[in-house]
Write a protein that binds this DNA or RNA. Structure first.
Lengths: 210, 210
DNA sequence: TTCGAGATGAGAGTGACTCCCGAATCCACG
DNA sequence: CGTGGATTCGGGAGTCACTCTCATCTCGAA
């Protein structure tokens, strides 16, 4: 409803036209309406019609902007960003460090923005299966993108089983960190949690009996 | 449609009653009809009504037997089985060996049964998002069950981030092995693939530069 | 045989999502 | 300016998965 302050990337170029600006506004309106309704009634009780009403658009328009109801509450963007980030790391850097850096950035992206929105989103990802599925699906896509960049840095080929497993484990770690963070009331330090997760993936589970 | 020969567990006890036998038959009929229709038309083009028609039941009955369309093609059972299996391992055994054993069993379960059915199922898991989501969801549940058994054997607590990440990585590995196996035309040895996947989780990605 | 519990079929209803078409709106061009 | 072409929007009809209800039927135990 109210204008979004651009917190992350300060808009480089001026607004390109009235049409584009309207589209962005509509998109924001739909999202805002959705978050508001979900906080009032819960996810399942919130229908597309209600969202359309509050956003003052038609139900058709809602689907023109978002392919599915779950997608309204998800942001994404992370996928290609992580890959670029990984490619941009200095060539000499050990690949585990590069990965760690990128995963930190992913955690940052996950936890940035309006705290209320972050909270609701994490909550939905934890409780609503449909939303969780979409998020996992999106992360899988990220994992697939990661393979190539990962293969460039480490040893094996991009489509080798080893790289596939590792990439999937990375996105799984991102998910677990997010979930655990949400379940613990958003108190712990997400980057520290990610470090612990990455330690597990690099060295295996810490065991009591060496 | 035609009677299912019990391939896996030879029925220990005699049939407990006509009612139960009918239920099993109906369940099989619905499944068989579904697989047949999917092979003819594809998943999306197959409706519940068509399935009900071919299985000679009402649409209501289909939903009485399966909570959702995707569940008709999935088998599951694996979750609690894996946990029992893990608990049953000898106490002295290194926990990595126990895990490896259990994951082998999981792969076996995934690849057992009618090869046609296995093929179609793997194909659907790879191509149809809804089916894949369900499968992942089911695997996540397995992962949650694994935590406790995993914690008993290794060092950290069951709800620690470390165990969560590792358990998720395990089910992720199971998924990648299944997918990669399906994508390669079911030619490779699934247990060998699982071994390679577990090596990655135990020691990290193999790197060209030691 | 009878009686109760569980299984089934039929129907109405909901909600997400698609398709289509006519009307309104914006943008570039003359 | 203003006009033509392209986008965008609203609205309506339609599909399909899934839920709920209720009457009917069938099995199984007494």
């Amino acid at each position: 409803m109210r204008p979004a302050r651009s917190q992350l990337p300060p808009d480089d170029r001026p607004p390109p036209g009235l049409r584009e600006r309207k589209k962005i506004k509509t998109r924001e309106a739909i999202r805002a309406a959705t978050y508001a309704l979900i906080e009032e009634q819960g996810y399942d009780a919130t229908t597309i019609d209600q969202i359309a009403d509050r956003a003052e658009v038609s139900p058709s328009t809602v689907f023109r902007y978002f392919p599915a109801k779950e997608d309204i509450v998800l942001t994404d963007e992370s996928g290609s960003l992580m890959v670029e980030e990984l490619r941009a790391r200095p060539a000499g850097e050990p690949w585990t460090d590069s990965v760690r850096h990128v995963m930190h950035r992913a955690v940052d992206a996950m936890t940035a923005g309006d705290p209320d929105v972050v909270r609701v989103r994490a909550h939905l990802a934890a409780r609503v299966p449909a939303v969780r599925s979409r998020m996992i699906e999106s992360m899988s896509r990220t994992g697939r993108l990661l393979r190539e960049a990962l293969a460039e840095r480490s040893g094996p080929a991009a489509d080798s089983l080893e790289v596939r497993v590792y990439a999937t484990a990375l996105v799984g770690a991102l998910m677990e960190v997010t979930m655990a963070w949400a379940e613990n009331g958003f108190q712990d330090d997400p980057r520290g949690m990610m470090d612990r997760a990455l330690d597990v993936l690099e060295h295996g589970l810490p065991t009591g009996k060496p």
